[in-house]
Structures are given as structure tokens and as C-alpha cells.
């Protein structure tokens, strides 16, 4: 599929307004692994013919890592600047590729004047499946594969989104297995609260290694992720366990794209 990614600036110049803004996020923009997921989300949007656009270079960090780390000044500076940009384009609806962006824009921007309908890409995929616009055909078969889903904290506990990502997996006719700690009891990957940007404090184990132990315990061949930071932590964990041949870490969007041969 040849990817055409429209920006808000282009759209506005043509006098068009997209139905939905795709908020890519910093990881989705710069992290090599996450960039691929970003392109996959675009493929899905393009495939179903949903009119969308991205902010491109006009996008900036939501301020999430600053806020979790205690830098409320920086967070609010980022938030207010972003709200100006979003409101400037009269954005009403946003889909994000990251649970952290999702949580921040959805819950913390309204108090600063930014009111949008915000969904996470797993929710969009679920909606598209429900509407019959997305299926699991024409691509790689996941039939009978053991897949487990890792709940990102800011999607699961943070915002009670547990079913949408699972729905995207159920359509694959796979063997969906749950880890011991799942859903509201899910174990963090270790990246949240700005841990992604620092060395872990002194301890006897890294959190992602603890998580991969559970993946191994359920014998999963695929760990489905829905967050670019979880993706990094889980991939590193799998590598450190020398299991990268047996266990694949894939985002919900990647799995969807593969299953549909996009």
C-alpha cells in the first residue's frame, strides 16, 4: 500500500477539514520501532477511507513525561501551546497512537481549555471492526497462535479501556491467553512515570524482566502491546531473556495490518 499522509496544514490550505486528527506522539514520531506502528495506523486509516490528518512538525510533546515527573510548569506550557494549535485547526476528534498522549489530552487538557473527543488507536480499531469496516482477511493468519495482551497502565487502569484491544485480537481466531496479572491487575512494563527517561532506581530486577517472566509462563508466541513505551520495554525484556526467536512483540495496529495484508 502506498502511504499518503496528509497534514493539517495541507488540508487547511485546501479548505478541507478531516474527520479525525491522528496525534502521533513523540515515540511514534522518533522511535524507529514506534515509527513503523505509526505508519501502520495510517495504513489502517487509509484502508478504511477515514478522512484524517496529522500535525506533522506542528505537533509537540503533550507534556506527559514532564507532568508525571513533577514538572507541572513544563507540562502546562506544552499543553497550552498544543491547545492553541489544535484549536487553531478547529480539531474536534483525535485518535492517538499512545496511551500517554491519550490520557493527557483526554483528561488533563479540558481543565486548561482543550476539549476534544479523544480515542486510542485500539478503540478506533475496535470501532472499525464493529462497523464491519475492518476484518482479519487477506493477510497473515494468526489462527491458533498463542497471543497474550499486555495492558498499558494509562489505557487500562488509567482509563478503564480493557476490552477494545482484546476485541482487535479476538477477531483473529487466535488462542488468546491472559497473563496472571492482567486487566486492572496488570503489571506495569516499567516505563511509566518518566522512568523511560532515567535509569531505574536500585533494586534486584528490572520490571520488564518480571513482566516477560509472565509472558513465558503462559507460553505466548506473541505479546500484543498498545503503547510505544511498553513496546520498548517488552522488546528489551524478550531480548534479555534471549527469547526473541520464540516471542514476538507486536502492537495491536501492526497485528491488524498484518492480518489484513495492508
Amino acid at each position: 500500500m502506498e502511504l499518503k499522509v496528509p497534514t493539517m496544514a495541507q488540508m487547511a490550505a485546501e479548505g478541507k477539514q478531516p474527520e479525525i486528527l491522528f496525534w502521533v506522539g513523540c515515540a511514534g514520531s522518533f522511535d524507529e520501532r514506534a515509527q513503523k506502528i505509526t505508519r501502520d495506523i495510517c495504513k489502517i486509516l487509509q484502508h478504511v477511507g477515514l478522512s484524517y490528518a496529522v500535525l506533522g512538525t506542528e505537533e509537540s510533546c503533550t507534556g506527559d513525561p514532564a507532568k508525571r515527573a513533577g514538572n507541572e510548569f513544563l507540562f502546562q506550557m506544552q499543553a497550552m501551546t498544543n491547545i492553541q494549535v489544535l484549536d487553531g485547526y478547529h480539531i474536534k476528534k483525535i485518535v492517538t497512537g499512545c496511551p500517554h498522549c491519550f490520557n493527557t489530552i483526554r483528561n488533563e487538557y479540558p481543565g486548561l481549555g482543550g476539549n476534544y473527543e479523544v480515542i486510542h488507536h485500539s478503540q478506533l480499531i475496535q470501532q472499525l471492526i464493529d462497523e464491519g469496516k475492518l476484518k482479519a482477511e487477506g493477510g497473515e493468519s494468526f489462527k491458533g497462535k498463542r497471543i497474550t495482551y499486555h495492558d498499558p497502565c494509562y489505557l487500562g487502569r488509567g482509563n478503564n479501556v480493557y476490552e477494545a484491544p482484546r476485541k482487535a485480537l479476538e477477531i483473529l481466531d487466535t488462542e488468546l491467553v491472559e497473563m496472571k496479572r492482567c486487566k486492572s491487575n496488570g503489571l506495569c512494563c516499567g516505563a511509566g512515570g518518566a522512568q523511560m527517561f532515567k535509569e531505574p532506581e536500585k533494586g534486584d530486577k528490572d520490571i520488564n524482566m518480571e513482566r516477560i517472566d509472565e509472558v513465558i509462563a503462559v507460553n505466548a508466541q506473541v505479546v500484543a502491546a498498545a503503547c510505544p513505551f511498553c513496546m520498548t520495554m517488552l522488546s528489551d525484556g524478550v531480548k534479555n531473556h534471549n527469547k526473541d526467536q520464540e516471542i514476538k512483540v507486536l502492537d495491536i495496529a501492526e497485528i491488524t495490518v498484518r492480518a489484513n495484508g495492508l
Binding site: F30, G56, S60, C61, N71, M77
Partner: peptide
């Protein structure tokens, strides 16, 4: 990380001008 967010709009040391490069992947 704070410095990067403040100056480049991302928690890593990447230039904001490169933010849309993923589309050329």
C-alpha cells in the same frame, strides 16, 4: 528530558524539524 521537551518538543534530543520524517519511511 525536561530540556529536550522544552527545546525540541520531544523528550529525546531530536530536532523538531525531523518530527514528520516517519512518513518517508
Amino acid at each position: 528530558m525536561f530540556g529536550n521537551v522544552e527545546n525540541n518538543g520531544a523528550p529525546w534530543k531530536y530536532s523538531n524539524a525531523d518530527r514528520f520524517n516517519w512518513a518517508d519511511g
